Simulated scan of single mutants.
Amino acid sequence: MRLQGNQLGTHLEELRNFANWILAIGDGNIGRSIDDTETIPIPNDILINDCTDPISAIVDSTYPEFYNYSNDLDYPQQRKILASTLDMVDSINEFMVSLNNNPENTYLSSDTVCMSDHYFTALEHVHTSKFLNNIKCFGIPNHSITLKVGVSIMLLINIDQLSGLCNGTRLVIIRLGDRVIEAKALSEKMAGEKIFIPRVSLTPYDARIPFKFQRR
Rank of each mutant, 00 (worst) to 15 (best):
I48R: 05
R179D: 14
M190D: 12
I81L: 02
N44H: 11
D74G: 11
N20E: 14
N71L: 05
L176V: 01
Q7G: 02
M88G: 10
A83L: 03
P103T: 12
S70R: 04
C137E: 03
D90S: 09
K184N: 15
I58H: 06
C166R: 00
R216S: 14
G28F: 01
K148E: 05
L47I: 13
N102E: 14
V126A: 02
H11T: 14
I174N: 10
I140V: 11
A19V: 14
I46L: 07
S110H: 08
N44R: 13
Q214V: 10
L99S: 02
Q161I: 14
P76V: 00
I58W: 00
E124G: 07
E38P: 10
G192H: 06
G164K: 00
R215N: 05
M88Q: 15
I181S: 05
E193W: 07
R16V: 08
N167T: 09
L12D: 06
S163H: 13
L123W: 10
F18I: 14
V151S: 15
E38I: 13
V180P: 09
E124A: 08
F138G: 15
L82R: 00
L86Y: 03
T128H: 03
A185R: 01
K189V: 06
K184H: 11
Q161H: 09
G5C: 08
T112H: 07
E14M: 08
R215W: 00
I145Y: 01
D74I: 03
L108W: 07
S187A: 06
E38F: 14
V59F: 03
D206A: 05
Q7A: 15
N49V: 10
S163E: 14
R175M: 12
N29W: 00
I46F: 04
Q161Y: 07
F131V: 13
S144M: 04
I173G: 04
P41T: 06
L23K: 12
A185V: 01
S61P: 03
I157R: 10
R216V: 15
F138D: 11
D60K: 04
L155D: 08
P141M: 00
R179F: 12
S56C: 08
T121R: 15
S129H: 09
D206F: 01
D36N: 12
P54C: 08
P41F: 02
L8A: 13
H11I: 09
K136V: 11
P204W: 00
D36Y: 05
L162V: 13
D160H: 07
I174F: 09
E94Q: 03
M115K: 15
G9S: 04
K212V: 05
T85K: 05
Q77S: 10
Y63D: 01
Y205Q: 14
I34T: 12
I159W: 09
D35A: 11
P64Y: 02
E14K: 08
C166P: 04
N142W: 03
G177I: 05
A24M: 07
H11G: 04
I145N: 06
I159N: 05
I135L: 10
Q161M: 12
S110L: 12
N29K: 06
I145D: 02
I140R: 00
A57P: 01
I34D: 13
L162Y: 06
G150N: 02
A83W: 00
R175Q: 15
P103G: 09
F196Q: 10
G150I: 04
Q4I: 11
N105K: 15
C114A: 11
L202S: 09
F211H: 01
I159E: 13
K194H: 13
C114T: 09
N100M: 11
N49M: 15
H125M: 12
A183M: 07
N134Q: 12
R32L: 10
